[in-house]
Amino acid sequence: MTKAASKETIKRRTIEDMKKLGVHKTQYNRLIDIYSELVHQYLELTIEFENGGYQFQVETDQGGAKKSPIVATLENLRKDILAYSDRLCLSPKAFENVTADTGKKSVLAEALKNLS
């Protein structure tokens, strides 16, 4: 049986990824906590969905069918995870729009500074 990564593992990996991208700041740790919890819930529910045979519809009292609650929850978690990923600059689209503070100065900036 597959086991989902723990919230702490997800948090640690998220911080590592953000550091590699040059976008991590300790002030973001509360957002990272929420993001980690959302990803953990998503992984747990995905395993439950798989173990349930991917039942994506349930019967209604009227005899029809509707989307199962687990599918609706997974969809909402995906949307929330995407929103937090964007805020934490973990998605390619969000990262495109960010200038990370790498601590390095451009060659031009150094040359201009030396002229003064």
Rank of each mutant, 00 (worst) to 15 (best):
E37K: 15
L38P: 03
R78S: 11
E59C: 07
S85A: 14
T46E: 06
E96Y: 15
E75V: 12
S6P: 03
V107M: 09
T73G: 01
E48K: 11
H40P: 05
N76K: 15
A5V: 07
T73Q: 15
G53P: 03
G52T: 01
D80A: 13
A5G: 02
G64C: 09
L45R: 11
K104A: 07
A109S: 12
L74G: 05
P92E: 10
D33M: 04
S91Y: 05
T60W: 07
I32F: 05
D80V: 01
Y42W: 09
A100I: 06
A94R: 10
S116T: 14
L90A: 09
L82D: 07
L77P: 03
V71F: 04
G103E: 00
P92T: 11
K11L: 03
L112P: 00
I47A: 02
E8H: 06
F49L: 01
T9W: 02
T9V: 08
T46K: 06
P69Y: 04
G103I: 02
D61N: 14
S85F: 00
Y35T: 01
S91K: 02
S6F: 00
G53C: 06
S6K: 06
Y84W: 05
I47N: 05
G63V: 05
T102F: 06
L112T: 07
N114T: 12
P92V: 09
G63C: 08
G52P: 00
E44H: 06
I32V: 13
G103A: 01
L88D: 05
N29Y: 00
Q57D: 08
K19E: 10
V107A: 10
E44V: 14
T46Y: 04
K93Q: 13
M18D: 03
Q57W: 05
F49Q: 03
S85P: 03
A100M: 08
R13L: 07
L82T: 05
T99E: 10
D61T: 15
K104Q: 09
D101H: 13
A111R: 13
Y28P: 01
L82N: 12
L115A: 10
E110Q: 15
G22E: 02
Q57T: 11
F49A: 01
A100L: 07
C89R: 14
A100T: 10
S106E: 04
M1F: 09
L108S: 10
V39S: 02
R30F: 00
E37P: 01
A72T: 14
T46N: 08
E96P: 14
G53Y: 01
N114L: 13
S91M: 04
G53N: 04
Q41G: 04
E110V: 15
D101G: 12
I32T: 07
I10R: 01
D101P: 08
V39M: 06
D33N: 15
